[in-house]
Design a protein around this nucleic acid. Structure first.
Length: 264
DNA sequence: CTCAGCCTGGAT
DNA sequence: ATCCAGGCTGAG
């Protein structure tokens, strides 16, 4: 998108999880994209017009970048789940597809990005320098929730979802049920490393394509083949020498997976 | 805090 | 037919 002009926008639906901004087409048409970025799970597209397109994929959202006029474009049957199409200069077609419509698209002033309600309370990026053991230890000490629930809270750390929290806790040898307040400092060091390593490994694998997720070029990630505990209930723990069984429990309405033996 | 709700679709 | 799903929010 960077450096390209938004020539036209097709709106095939008026709302996803929330209403699409009524002036989305009028505001963004003609704008040139200055840069793209990300904050937590939100994708940010800044334009030279001073408008920022704020995007969230929810659970099933996808962006697909193709060349206009190719078979995917204007096919005989329009995809009922492709809700928005951005027609960029240079024949670049960007489709936003989201079967469950839990995603979000909004337009805000670029100047308002730092104070936007959805972004301002996000915690540090887990791969950034300000996410470290001192920070996390203090943050966990201040909470009552189980560590699994705390790590899912985007205000503590931004961008971790159910899969990567489960995987990181396995890697750190910490039970998702453990109280946030009762994790020794040394184990928080290990947890920070585990979170970073889990994300690094998943990123290198192109993410986890369970069903809907794919990269913008349509290629699938492969990290789902390397889940140690996520979705592995009933299986033997993959840790060498560990004889434990992976269990599924529900915490704060979400499934957690962990080894009964090596996660304490 | 937990819960229901937003939606569709896949697995059992 | 029922349960489950990568996220988030407003209500209780």
């Amino acid at each position: 998108m960077t450096g390209r002009r938004i020539e036209a926008i097709e709106l095939h639906r008026l709302r996803l999880r929330t209403e699409l901004p009524s002036d989305l087409v009028g505001t963004l048409t003609g704008c040139v994209v200055k840069r793209t970025g990300r904050r937590g799970k939100y994708i940010l597209v800044d334009t030279r017009c001073g408008h920022t397109l704020l995007c969230h994929l929810g659970m099933t959202g996808q962006f697909l970048v193709t060349t206009a006029g190719e078979p995917n474009d204007a096919g005989p049957e329009p995809d009922p789940h492709e809700h928005v199409v951005l027609r960029m200069s240079g024949n670049v077609r960007i489709g936003f597809r989201d079967p469950r419509r839990f995603g979000l698209l909004d337009v805000i002033a670029t100047a308002d990005v730092p104070t936007d309600k959805r972004l301002r309370d996000l915690g540090p990026e887990p791969l950034g320098d300000d996410f470290n053991a001192s920070y996390l230890y203090a943050g966990l000490r201040a909470r009552r929730a189980p560590v699994k629930t705390a790590l899912m809270d985007q205000r503590l750390v931004a961008g971790l979802g159910n899969i990567y929290v489960c995987e990181a806790l396995w890697r750190a040898g910490i039970s998702p049920r453990r109280s946030s307040r009762r994790i020794a400092r040394r184990r928080v060091d290990r947890l920070v490393d585990a979170i970073r390593e889990t994300l690094d490994e998943a990123l290198a694998a192109g993410g986890s394509s369970l069903r809907d997720y794919h990269a913008v070029d349509g290629t699938f990630g492969t990290f789902q083949h390397r889940f140690r505990v996520y979705g592995q209930q009933g299986s033997r723990c993959p840790r060498p020498g560990c004889e434990g069984i992976v269990r599924r429990i529900v915490q704060a309405g979400r499934s957690s997976f962990y080894c009964l033996s090596c996660q304490k």
